[in-house]
Design a protein around this nucleic acid. Structure first.
Lengths: 115, 115
DNA sequence: ATCGTTTATCGCCGATGGACGATGACCGAA
DNA sequence: TTCGGTCATCGTCCATCGGCGATAAACGAT
């Protein structure tokens, strides 16, 4: 794979007149909308950075499943990936995470300001 | 149908050692993780309250599809529903929305504080 | 070279999501 | 009552998700 999670699309299908913004926000929230991935994010953050195996040990999920969740998080740009010898180091991208938080806050604000 | 989306569960499946919190947050984010629903939330908020038809006119989605999206938002507690004659009035629950925002912010904070 | 470990990917499967059209209920107006 | 508009629900279809085991690649150590 090349890189950016949003190069072309990678978002859910949306009706015609949806702001592109909504698609991006939705895609990021989708990455966060699974309990296992939320826990993985927490775990990564607490450990600063982890390899896949550490996460597998923590949760009782198959290694392939964890790898898949990690991939989804990386593709959403919420987690950074760096190969390290035969390991893979995964670390939370705090800026991206903060950005998601800001996006949600902005949505909520836009909803309240319009009243 | 009987009732509340969370009576027993209504959340996504989660590995054993997921904080119950994560399931609740994930469920709410799931409701927000679709571009159409985000746009619907914005529209509801801008109009203060809408009936289903108004939303259908705004987006080119079938009435049944919009109704389904609204149902999901209501079940997630993000939108309030009130029957009004033969119409249905839908309005954003700003408190609930703010709560979601707070949940995400808390997640992000917990990730940053642990460093 | 061989083994053990770690990882990503593949294929499969059941379940869910998202879209639609059709239908029937409800209600106001004619 | 009948008609038109609004709505929720049902059934269907297709795509995606989420889980798993199996496999192969990569690499360090023996």
């Amino acid at each position: 794979m090349t890189e950016s999670p949003f190069e072309t699309d990678g978002c859910r299908p949306a009706p015609r007149n949806c702001a592109p913004d909504s698609r991006v926000v939705a895609a990021r929230l989708a990455a966060l909308s699974h309990p296992a991935r939320i826990e993985i994010i927490k775990h990564l953050s607490a450990s600063n950075s982890c390899c896949c195996r550490e996460v597998v040990d923590r949760f009782d999920l198959a290694q392939s499943t964890v790898s898949q969740h990690l991939k989804i998080l990386v593709e959403a740009g919420l987690v950074r990936f760096e190969p390290d010898r035969q390991r893979s180091r995964y670390a939370v991208d705090h800026a991206a995470l903060a950005d998601v938080s800001a996006s949600v806050a902005a949505l909520v604000n836009s909803c309240c300001s319009g009243r």
